[in-house]
């Protein structure tokens, strides 16, 4: 068994590049999904019913689709409509679009629970539109929903593992390569699990940092 781990250690460059790719994918997808989700949440909160309804349909459909199917659709399905991505493009687009729906719903739920008065004060002090959203509405939303957003980022990290099926060289793909090359499935996959766990620990410490900021303001 020790020997198996030594074999994985021998392939550390491959494993580390897989880890790096997973981190890059997750960070990019997490940031973009949060940003786009914030914008989409403003659409969900629109008073014009038709606009809000369009966003609502997208959010519900995306949330009810298994991520694997969603990735298949973008990588294998879209080319028949003339839209073609390479595996990195398809993987990133799938992660971002899919999790934007979740982020939007998370922020919308936090928004509904916010007190009305500070926003009203924003109106009275001359805020409107995007400035109102960015300066007055969004900061308390992010503070209030940090634990749920953090949870969603962890979900992004885990969903990125599905992208091994479109040959994206992320961590699961790397572990899979190592095990098939040397037939050390337990050592290779357990190493990957521990590395995923490490990523999650970093995310959780980020969440608790934001949580402390929120606590100081509560």
């Amino acid at each position: 068994m020790i020997h198996d781990f030594a074999v994985v250690w021998g392939e550390r460059d491959l494993m580390l590049s897989g880890l790096a790719n997973t981190v890059v994918l997750s960070v990019l997808a997490g940031l973009c999904a949060l940003l786009l989700g914030a914008l989409l949440s403003t659409v969900l909160m629109q008073k014009q019913r038709a606009v809000a309804l369009g966003a609502r349909v997208f959010v519900d459909v995306a949330r009810c689709t298994p991520f694997l199917l969603f990735a298949y659709l973008i990588y294998y399905g879209l080319p028949s409509l003339g839209v073609r991505f390479d595996n990195w493009g398809a993987g990133l687009v799938a992660l971002i679009v899919y999790h934007t729906a979740y982020m939007a719903e998370i922020l919308r739920a936090a928004w509904v629970a916010q007190p009305r008065e500070p926003i009203e004060a924003g109106l009275a002090f001359g805020y409107s539109g995007l400035r109102m959203f960015r300066r007055i509405v969004l900061p308390p939303l992010v503070l209030a929903s940090a634990p749920v957003v953090g949870n969603q980022v962890i979900q992004i990290v885990k969903d990125s593992a599905f992208l091994t099926i479109i040959a994206l060289p992320e961590l699961t793909h790397a572990a899979s390569s190592v095990q098939s090359r040397h037939y050390v499935p337990f050592a290779a996959f357990l190493t990957a699990v521990l590395l995923y766990w490490g990523i999650c620990l970093v995310i959780e410490s980020g969440v608790s940092a934001v949580g402390r900021m929120a606590e100081a303001r509560r």
């Binding site: 009203e120 004060a121 009275a124 001359g126 007055i136 308390p140 509560r218």
Partner: peptide, 21 residues
């Protein structure tokens, strides 16, 4: 335009309405 006009008045609210963040 309304927002701009509102900057000419200051308002103090019953429930304070300070920005918590």
């Amino acid at each position: 335009e309304l927002a701009l006009m509102r900057t000419r008045t200051g308002m103090v609210f019953q429930h304070f309405a300070l920005w918590p963040h």
